[in-house]
Design a protein around this nucleic acid. Structure first.
Lengths: 345, 345
DNA sequence: CTGAAAGCGCTTACAG
DNA sequence: CTGAAAGCGCTTACAG
């Protein structure tokens, strides 16, 4: 029994079929260059390949040509967090589903601390193109990729590099405006919007939606937006707001849910009940799917984002598929929920 | 602004440093062949590489040499199922964590139906080695991989190909025996073990543990094991068993949990309460973590399996790390739970 | 209509 | 001590 039996390559097929290795490549490659070759030759090659059980070496294919049917997925943190409410999972599921439908495998460049960002990002070239997950944008490395023509797509709107980064995100502006409009429709005129302190397009978009809808409804914009990391959301604060006439709270949704949880705690501590005393809405879905009444707000279509991002990347790889907008914002469906009630006139 | 600015390669460094491309390769490769080269040259090369922002092309590296710091993960079904109770996730989390610790990226070969198993499995060669998840063992393709010396590791015990497939699994024999011993210790002498009909090492191991422990305790083995897909588990069946003197039910754990759920339903329909009327244990954890009292049984250390599998694969890739057993069975910690009660004498 | 050549970016013997 | 050559398994112009 021979160990390490060599796996057949094109040269072996060529020998068996009595043609050159290059001809084998042409036949097996589906003759994309439109070379003329006799049907007899074609069949001989195909038969020999079949008989030898030939399967192309993906590494050599990739080195010689440009394509490998391999899509990268780059995350700055672990793709499979064990303790955090997992917002990656549905995105990954969507990516996987669409990639499989397109016959593409996935290569995960997961947050390893070994090498620097630059080296790790450069490694994404192993794939035909790469999806990026995470707020972080290392502009040097990503700019280099972009400049070299390597196709990338971010999940989530990105403004860096003069807005040249292709992305698929959620239309948080419209969805947030719709939530505020819903509150206004229920008679609310005095709101507070609670957002986390750090800047990010997804946060800014929500705030913009809130401000626009408030302005459209002629609501006072002064004091509307409150930046907080949650630590100053005490029972006293909420009680004061209520005494001030605030009838509805709108909370930003983030991965950690810090502000949302702080709000819930403070409401309970102040003995304010939802939605009888005050209405509550979340711009997204509260993390961890807490028990109790369903919170009003909107859905973030993460799975569909994953799918759409793969499709965008595929079209970037193959411009023949048409040149879609490099920036796509998906609609976030409203969630009626049970935490918005009408204001008594 | 030039588009598609080329990314630096070794030849560029060679030009800048005034040496040959091969010398650059030697220096950058850490001089593993023990070639003698002057410190001056080494520094010049390193400096030029740094200045140009060089990062090796993984594809070329892989083609020319053997290593790529890339571990494959092959699944026969989607790695991110959307509707099934997810048993892959913790394994993937463990794989990712250990791979990151080892500075390896992951390439996911996810169940795409486009190509046949053979072609898809051959594609795993893109990686340095590959982990396989799933009961399915296509012996032809996997045997070919094995024969060619390509390192693979299965998650879960595998007996195919004369037991030559390296794997990391759970020690279900011992864990199952322990559960039965626990029941015996609580005075149970009359059990039923419910397992699904299809053969698999993980099922057979559990059954063996159950049989062994039962025999050791001098329990009747006749009628102990019941093969069922759940459809025949009616209230009448359970009532009859109980009338027969059965005091405890042991249920196999599987991905779908069909038998477990059927058992729960039938118990409820028959008005048999757990653990007052009958004790209940699951050989593993019930899928979906159902509400109610914690079911007695054992833990399947999925995360640790992922980690251990990566370590095994790494040692297969680098025999210098020592030659560990190619077959590893991890201990499954007992879960006391609340569904085993003592039998009244 | 088909073959021979060059090249993708590396590594690893092998000459000097 | 360092360079030139061959080769990994493919694809893609380019000759005949």
């Amino acid at each position: 029994m021979s160990r390490a039996r060599r796996t057949p390559r094109q040269a072996d097929i060529a020998r068996v079929a009595g043609v050159s290795q290059a001809t084998v490549s042409v036949v097996l490659g589906g003759n994309r260059t439109g070379v003329r070759l006799s049907e007899r030759t074609r069949l001989r090659v195909l038969e020999a390949a079949e008989r030898l059980g030939y399967v192309p070496d993906p590494v050599a294919t990739r080195l010689a040509s440009a394509r490998n049917n391999l899509l990268g997925v780059y995350t700055f943190t672990p793709a499979f967090p064990i303790d955090v409410a997992d917002s990656y999972y549905p995105i990954l599921a969507g990516i996987e589903a669409e990639a499989a439908a397109l016959g593409q495998d996935l290569i995960m460049f997961t947050g390893s601390s070994a090498a620097g960002d630059h080296t790790r990002i450069r490694r994404t070239r192993l794939a035909d193109g790469c999806l990026f997950l995470g707020r972080h944008v290392p502009v040097d490395a990503v700019g280099e990729l972009l400049a070299s023509g390597f196709p990338i797509v971010y999940i989530g709107r990105r403004t860096e590099l003069d807005g040249t980064i292709p992305y698929v995100g959620g239309d948080y502006v419209s969805a947030s405006a719709e939530v505020v409009a819903r509150l206004v429709g229920a008679g609310h005129r005095h709101l507070r919007y609670l957002r986390e302190p750090d800047e990010a397009p997804s946060s800014d978009d929500r705030e913009r939606g809130v401000r626009t809808a408030a302005a459209d409804a002629g609501l006072p914009v002064d004091g509307l937006v409150v930046r907080t990391d949650g630590s100053d959301l005490t029972a006293a604060t909420l009680a004061a707001w209520r005494a001030d006439g605030v009838t509805a709270l709108v909370v930003e949704e983030t991965d950690t849910g810090a502000v949302f949880h702080a709000t819930q705690r403070a409401l309970r501590a102040a003995g304010i009940s939802v939605p009888d005393d005050v209405s509550l809405a979340v711009l997204g879905r509260p993390p961890g799917d807490p028990p109790g009444p369903e919170i009003s707000g909107f859905e973030v279509p993460r799975r569909e984002m994953g799918r759409a991002a793969v499709r965008l990347l595929a079209s970037l790889l193959d411009p023949g598929l048409g040149d879609p907008a490099a920036h796509r914002l998906l609609t976030c469906p409203p969630v009626a929920g049970e935490t918005i009630s009408a204001v008594r006139p």
